[in-house]
Simulated assay, not measured.
Amino acid sequence: MLPNYPHHIVQRGHNRQVVFADARDFEYYLSDLRELKEALGLRVYAYCLMTNHVHLLLSPGDTPASLGRLMKALAARMTRYRNRLEGRSGTLWESRYKSSIVQSDTYLLACSRYIELNPVRAHIVLKAEHYPWSSYSLRVVEPTENNWLDIDPCFEALGSTELVRRERYKEFVEQVAPNGELDLIRSALQRGQLTGSSRFVEEIEQITGLRITSRGQGRPTKNLNKD
């Protein structure tokens, strides 16, 4: 974990068991996420809750350990909640979540799109706005005053007004992703590697003093910072 860098995180139910069975389960988790991100000083840029796993795009600010504390608290609270409902005991989640540090300027919006299109790729809905348990509805559909998402700098750079930013992001999500982008994001997450270019890998190596194994690079996302 590194301070002030976005992290793409996925956590799955143990043996892919159901974590969210109905609307109350989704609402409980999101309420905890909103509460804990404020308490721990993290930023939430995107999320998607699926039946047996969650995707989160988070930035830990100046305290990278806060990210681990958030994930531990979210997992523990949801486990207690489900165990109470079902009158059972035992684990709910896989033992360890997966994470990938994301290159902000090139791949942050691409990771948001990847996360929010999960239900579309899974053939649960036809469009991202039809799924109620992802950040897409907050980002594009809901009135601004209901939006508790943190605005990342790449989204903010899409336009000078909230309306323009929403419209341009919606167009971006509806575009076909460049060749290799999905595989790059998925592979980086599964292997715990960086989501970014070779130059980004070098930057992180300089910061950490560690040699980082790289992998094939997909074509970067087109610049959306229009006039």
Rank of each mutant, 00 (worst) to 15 (best):
Met1Gln: 12
Met1Thr: 12
Pro3Met: 05
Ile9Gln: 01
Ile9Asn: 04
Val10His: 03
Gly13Arg: 02
His14Gly: 08
Arg16Met: 00
Gln17Arg: 10
Val18Asn: 01
Tyr28Phe: 14
Tyr28Ile: 08
Tyr29Gly: 04
Arg34Leu: 11
Glu35Leu: 14
Val44Trp: 01
Ala46Cys: 07
Ala46Asp: 08
Cys48Leu: 03
Leu49Arg: 03
Met50Asp: 06
Met50Gln: 02
Thr51Val: 12
Asn52Gly: 00
Val54His: 06
Val54Lys: 08
Leu57Lys: 07
Gly61Cys: 03
Thr63Cys: 11
Ser66Asp: 14
Leu67Glu: 07
Gly68Thr: 10
Arg69Glu: 14
Leu70Ser: 05
Met71Lys: 09
Met71Pro: 07
Ala73Ser: 15
Leu74Asp: 08
Ala75Met: 06
Arg77Glu: 06
Tyr81Ala: 00
Arg82Lys: 11
Asn83Lys: 02
Leu85Thr: 09
Leu85Asp: 05
Thr91Tyr: 11
Leu92Glu: 07
Trp93Glu: 07
Lys98Gln: 04
Ser99Lys: 08
Ile101Asp: 03
Val102Met: 04
Val102Asn: 09
Asp105Phe: 04
Thr106His: 14
Leu109Lys: 07
Leu109Pro: 02
Ser112Asp: 15
Ile115Lys: 06
Glu116Met: 07
Leu117Gly: 01
Asn118Asp: 01
Asn118Gln: 13
Pro119Val: 04
Val125Ile: 09
Val125Ala: 05
Lys127Ile: 04
Ala128Thr: 04
Ala128Arg: 06
Ala128Val: 04
His130Asn: 15
His130Gln: 15
Tyr136Val: 07
Ser137Cys: 15
Leu138Ile: 01
Arg139Ser: 09
Val140Ala: 05
Thr144Asn: 09
Glu145Leu: 11
Asn147Met: 03
Asp150Pro: 03
Ile151Ala: 12
Ile151Asn: 09
Ile151Thr: 15
Cys154Asp: 13
Phe155Ser: 05
Ala157Pro: 05
Ala157Gln: 02
Ser160Arg: 14
Val164Trp: 00
Arg165Gly: 06
Arg166Asp: 00
Glu167Ala: 13
Arg168Gly: 03
Arg168Trp: 05
Val173Cys: 10
Glu174Pro: 09
Leu184Tyr: 06
Ser187Phe: 14
Ser187Ala: 12
Arg191Glu: 13
Gly196Phe: 04
Ser197Asp: 01
Val201Lys: 12
Gln206Trp: 10
Ile207Arg: 13
Gly216Arg: 13
Gln217Asp: 04
Gly218His: 03
Gly218Leu: 03
Thr221Lys: 08
Leu224Ala: 11
Asn225Trp: 15
